[in-house]
Design a protein around this nucleic acid. Sequence first.
DNA 1: GTTAATGCAAACGGTTTGCAGGGGT
DNA 2: ACCCCTGCAAACCGTTTGCATTAAC
Lengths: 150, 150
Amino acid sequence: MEIEKPGKQHLHQLKQLCNDAGIKLTHQRLEIFRELMSVSDHPSAELIHKRLHKRLPTIAIDTVYRTLTTFDELGLVKKLHIMNERTLFDTNVTIHHHFICSHCKKVTDIYWSDLDNSKLPEMVEGMGKIQSRHLEIHGVCNDCLHKSEE
Amino acid sequence: MEIEKPGKQHLHQLKQLCNDAGIKLTHQRLEIFRELMSVSDHPSAELIHKRLHKRLPTIAIDTVYRTLTTFDELGLVKKLHIMNERTLFDTNVTIHHHFICSHCKKVTDIYWSDLDNSKLPEMVEGMGKIQSRHLEIHGVCNDCLHKSEE
DNA sequence: GTTAATGCAAACGGTTTGCAGGGGT
DNA sequence: ACCCCTGCAAACCGTTTGCATTAAC
């Protein structure tokens, strides 16, 4: 079953966003945006760079980092800092959680509105002003389970 | 209200643990263990090193890293990889979650057994073999809220 | 005495930064 | 034409590793 990914942005929206934010719509930003919107996983900056390099042989890794940080600030992507791994970028900016395979490190989106809406324990409510909650489920994904059976 | 930290280990238990694991009980390991057990927060390797340096001026940062990794493998501490921050070590190895202040980065333990025991959505159960779940609550802690009021 | 652990220094990998030159507005 | 953005290179920072020395068993 394919999960419909909410919040997909389209190319013409980028121009609007850049205009509103007062930043330039450069060739690189456009291509990084296109690349982001075409992937369904949680790519690293390095992976984005590697893929783009085929089309844009001169693009530099630091431009990718800078652009992804810009996009993060614009709310186009969300930086993910999972476990010991490198920073990943999530193009899904709606509320959701993550299943992380401890074997192949694949990250899968999880929707659990009951958790999002459930009342936090008193103790937590009293700790301060809550902004967000994020659940990480760790386990071994089906792919890896089947591979280890072979 | 002070939360009683479960799983506090005592010095004589370390000797036992090292024996069982077949590793040597060195001066450095003992001191790092003592330091860990004396703190109530989530220290980084660098902080542990800085504090120990007063007592043991020759201790090296890489020894601290190596020892903490060893302790992690022994189950004495748990490595925490939160947000963009450096690796932290949690001396509380019982099931719990974390509140992270987005301002001062302080990490506070949370107990929420309802979450630990609640049934995961079907979708998640079908993703693979679940090993653990960890909730991060992000927000601004009371200390920082009060400071910003001043 | 044997072996593993330490300290030192250098490498590592992902990410960030200073700068001069190039491209978007 | 102006200034932002890019590419290049080098710095950065937390962490890891190779190696000779030291200390636990």
